[in-house]
Amino acid sequence: MTTPESGFSSVTDAQRMYDMAPCGYVTVAWSGTILAVNRTFLQWTGYTAESLVGVRTFVDLLSRATAVYSETHLRPMLLMGSSVREIALELVCADGSRLAVLLNASLERADNGEPEVMRVVVFDASERRAYERELFRAKERAEASEAHARLLARTLQDTLIPPSPPQVPGLEIAAAYRPAGDGEEVGGDFYEVFQRRAGEWVVVLGDVCGKGVDAAVVTALVRYSLRAAVVERESPAAAMDLLNRIVLDHDTDRFCTIVLMYLRQSDRGWVADVCTAGHPAPVLVQPGQAPHAEQAISSLVGVLDDPVFVDAHLELAPGDLLLLYTDGVTEGRRDTDFFGEERMHASIETHRVSAAAVVAGLLADVLDFQRGRTTDDLALVALKVPEGV
């Protein structure tokens, strides 16, 4: 009888434990020749002891790729550390099939310190390898699904942002949109410039709270509802009131901020009626004057049953420039610092030569401030009455 104190009752018991262990044992001379194997290893691989012991090297039993790894990594690691653990290898069985294994090994040295024998323990890792392959396939499927979602998001975003503003006689118009971060997530910022009737144009810029598909759905609702509202209502404030009812009736808890502007050409330039619904006020830049906000803030859209929307009346003379922007500009962050209105006004002042220069310059300044990665999506629309109009 075997007890912890007495050890094995006989050499036969020890041999049986060695042979029938739930892992493979292989003793390998440092030269590579197999010196001993247990029965478990033989059962897994289909070899006989006579075909291996003193006849084959351990490397002979490895697939080509793992044989190279054994020679270039396993043996050097044993020389440096005397033992290795959980080395993934692939055995070629007697019938040619492959068996994934994990290998632990230790190195015994002769009295003179030279490497003499490797004691190798082999664990069947075929089920683990199958599990890893399934994980890898699942990862590939998830990555493909994510890539498809990003493509859909990009396509959806492209439908919400016009590729370029239209050409309006007697008015410079420039616009830009920049999504947050790496640009893969759909944002809620949008802009639009379109003709309301002969000689009259509409400019709208807005920001639906949140991101993702839900925000995009509300953005699409707001954008197309506004197109209908401006046809029915003679003032931006009235159109905004109609839009507010539409958003409240929609099954969403998202709200939005909007700047809506009716523009018409006059003898002295352009006349603008502007409703700013909870949104940052447009910035007016006139020759010889510093940029300043045109304050006339109304209620948010999609929050109150009885909101207050008011229009501001602006006259834009030749040389005047008006900038509409979303809060992704002023709230752009670098560490704990915000880009802010002061930097925005300085950028506008620097690039005020044209609408296109203001948009391109301000966008570049915001990106540079945030080291090229925006913390929020942002949209810009600049209007300038050319000199001599």
Rank of each mutant, 00 (worst) to 15 (best):
E127D: 13
N112Y: 06
K139W: 02
A144V: 09
S145A: 11
D124I: 10
S106L: 04
E143M: 07
R150T: 11
A110W: 01
P166S: 15
T159M: 14
A142S: 10
P115L: 13
L99V: 11
R154G: 10
A147L: 12
V122N: 03
Q157C: 13
E134R: 08
L103S: 06
E114F: 07
A105Q: 03
L107V: 05
G113P: 05
R133E: 15
S106Q: 06
L160R: 06
G113F: 09
A138P: 00
F136E: 14
P115W: 10
V117D: 02
V121Q: 01
Q167N: 09
F136T: 15
L160A: 15
A142H: 05
A105M: 07
V122W: 00
A138S: 08
L102D: 08
L107M: 09
L99F: 02
L151P: 02
P115G: 13
D124H: 04
D124A: 08
P165A: 13
L160N: 06
V117E: 03
L102Y: 03
A144F: 02
A105E: 03
G96P: 00
A125W: 00
F123D: 06
R109D: 04
Y131H: 09
R98L: 11
R141F: 03
E108N: 06
R141D: 05
M118V: 12
E140P: 09
L99N: 00
P165M: 12
L103P: 03
E127I: 14
D158T: 11
F123C: 12
L107R: 11
A105R: 04
K139E: 10
A138Y: 00
V120L: 12
D158M: 13
R119K: 06
G113A: 07
G96V: 15
R150L: 13
R119C: 10
T159D: 04
H148F: 14
H148V: 12
R150A: 13
P165C: 07
S106N: 05
L99D: 02
A138K: 01
L152F: 14
R129M: 13
L107D: 03
E134D: 07
S145H: 01
E146Y: 09
R133F: 10
A147Y: 05
L156V: 07
R137I: 10
A147E: 04
T155R: 05
G113H: 02
E140Y: 01
H148N: 12
Q157H: 02
E132H: 02
R137D: 05
A142I: 06
S97M: 04
V122H: 00
R137P: 01
S97W: 02
P163A: 08
Q167S: 11
T159E: 08
N104F: 01
P165S: 14
V122P: 01
R154Q: 14
N112G: 08
V121W: 00
L156W: 07
A144C: 04
